[in-house]
Simulated scan of single mutants.
Amino acid sequence: MSDRQKGLVDALKFVVPKAEIRFCARHIWANFKLTWSGQVYKEAFWTAARALTQADFDKAMEGMKFLSKEAYAYLRAIPAQHWSMHAFGKQAKSNMLLNNICESFNAVIREARDKPILTHMEWMRRYVMKRMYEKREGVKKYNEEYMPYVDKSLKWAIDESRFCKFIGSSLNVYEVDFHGEQVVVNIEARTCDCNHWQLTGGTVAAYVDEVYSKAKYVLAYEPVVAPIPGQKLWEKTGLPEPLPPAERVMPGRPKSKKRRKEPGEDDGKGSLATTKELARTPQWPPTPKSKGGRPQKSTAWAKEARQIAEKRKATKEGYLRCTGSTSNIQHSAVTTDGQANGTQQSVVRDHELFN
């Protein structure tokens, strides 16, 4: 399972020529929707990717051709055995469409990526040794014949069997009607025309493929990674120790250590920390960028300030018309004996207020 990075497909053909190669459907869709986006194209693409039979795949591709001949040609150029369920090999007993296993592995080794080669390999060895040990010890507490994944699949099959109507043809061959689809099931050969049995290894308790059994699980984690002593106890070879390469500053802006995400991978969802921060901080409407100079006359603050200034000016002008000039007010504010007159005091206070 790969994301079709440049050179990776050719390398897999050279290194593991007999292995079944699948392409991650999510990465294909991420590139596909750059040109043909929308819910209709999305449903048509995933219908073709999840098609279990050739007839279902052809029907889905005809729908894609009706939407866009260019989109149809784009998907036809990718071999169906790499991205559509109906063309997958039957030996793997898996209908997986996404490379979640690779993404999980990359997330685990993130801590060791930037370490020197010896430290990196030692970290990987210790991680694999610990994981193999934990899996061997954990499966000892499990007493069922098949692993938990099979139990979930069997529960789903039991619920869906309510909609199955079958007619026996011979001892092990049946004609089954399921949601309007008519298929032939051969219990002895462990095949079904819907292709689901061959892909996943079966959903009937007595006919589940042994690859999902506890015995096979134990066998997968049976190899033991041997412990080794610390570096100071390693055998001396007498050869000079390898030195790290000289540090060199590369031109351009430093790249982020985070993985570059595909378009639409986030779907507008931020991290948990960002979500909490946004919930804690009130979101005010954005303030328009100021162009400098005097404040705009149309803002609410400017209008209110202008109204107050006009009101004060009108009040002052009316007061002066009734009492005379400013010099007369200041001249008569105090009597000859130093005692302030009540009327004159109020005049002085009003004068100071308006000035």
Results as ranks from 00 to 15, higher is better:
residue 85 M to Y: 00
residue 267 D to R: 15
residue 100 N to R: 10
residue 288 P to T: 05
residue 313 K to N: 04
residue 319 Y to L: 13
residue 160 E to P: 01
residue 268 G to V: 05
residue 305 A to D: 01
residue 277 E to N: 13
residue 192 C to I: 04
residue 78 I to E: 05
residue 137 E to I: 04
residue 323 T to K: 13
residue 158 I to A: 09
residue 331 H to Q: 11
residue 240 P to D: 03
residue 82 H to G: 02
residue 245 P to N: 07
residue 341 N to M: 09
residue 125 R to V: 06
residue 51 A to F: 07
residue 265 E to F: 04
residue 51 A to W: 07
residue 59 K to D: 09
residue 163 F to V: 03
residue 105 F to R: 13
residue 51 A to K: 14
residue 238 G to Y: 00
residue 133 Y to M: 13
residue 88 F to C: 05
residue 170 S to G: 12
residue 236 K to T: 01
residue 166 F to R: 14
residue 327 S to N: 10
residue 228 I to H: 11
residue 220 A to G: 04
residue 84 S to G: 11
residue 278 L to P: 02
residue 331 H to K: 15
residue 280 R to P: 04
residue 153 S to G: 08
residue 158 I to W: 00
residue 45 F to M: 11
residue 128 V to K: 15
residue 177 D to Q: 11
residue 12 L to E: 09
residue 222 E to G: 03
residue 197 W to E: 03
residue 151 D to Y: 03
residue 72 Y to D: 11
residue 38 G to L: 10
residue 68 S to A: 10
residue 164 C to P: 02
residue 265 E to D: 08
residue 319 Y to V: 04
residue 191 T to I: 07
residue 74 Y to C: 14
residue 9 V to R: 15
residue 88 F to G: 09
residue 148 P to S: 07
residue 206 A to G: 07
residue 320 L to E: 10
residue 188 E to M: 13
residue 41 Y to R: 14
residue 192 C to V: 05
residue 10 D to F: 02
residue 147 M to H: 02
residue 296 Q to A: 07
residue 345 Q to E: 09
residue 130 K to W: 02
residue 353 L to K: 15
residue 151 D to G: 08
residue 339 Q to G: 01
residue 262 E to N: 12
residue 154 L to R: 08
residue 269 K to H: 06
residue 317 E to M: 11
residue 108 V to E: 06
residue 322 C to G: 04
residue 123 W to Y: 08
residue 262 E to I: 08
residue 255 K to Q: 06
residue 111 E to A: 09
residue 272 L to I: 10
residue 93 K to R: 13
residue 165 K to P: 00
residue 289 K to M: 03
residue 343 T to E: 08
residue 195 N to G: 05
residue 312 R to K: 13
residue 165 K to N: 04
residue 210 E to V: 02
residue 83 W to E: 05
residue 292 G to R: 10
residue 29 W to K: 11
residue 54 Q to S: 12
residue 43 E to Y: 06
residue 38 G to H: 10
residue 21 I to L: 14
residue 48 A to L: 11
residue 280 R to A: 14
residue 218 V to M: 12
residue 103 E to H: 07
residue 298 S to K: 13
residue 117 I to G: 05
residue 83 W to D: 08
residue 291 K to W: 03
residue 20 E to G: 09
residue 279 A to Q: 14
residue 345 Q to V: 11
residue 175 E to G: 09
residue 274 T to F: 08
residue 332 S to G: 13
residue 201 G to H: 03
residue 47 T to Y: 05
residue 229 P to K: 13
residue 349 R to T: 09
residue 216 K to F: 00
residue 43 E to N: 15
residue 52 L to S: 14
residue 32 F to E: 08
residue 135 K to A: 12
residue 302 A to I: 00
residue 203 T to G: 01
residue 10 D to A: 14
residue 219 L to P: 01
residue 309 A to E: 08
residue 200 T to A: 05
residue 18 K to I: 00
residue 68 S to H: 14
residue 68 S to F: 07
residue 342 G to M: 09
residue 334 V to E: 04
residue 339 Q to D: 01
residue 253 R to E: 04
residue 280 R to V: 05
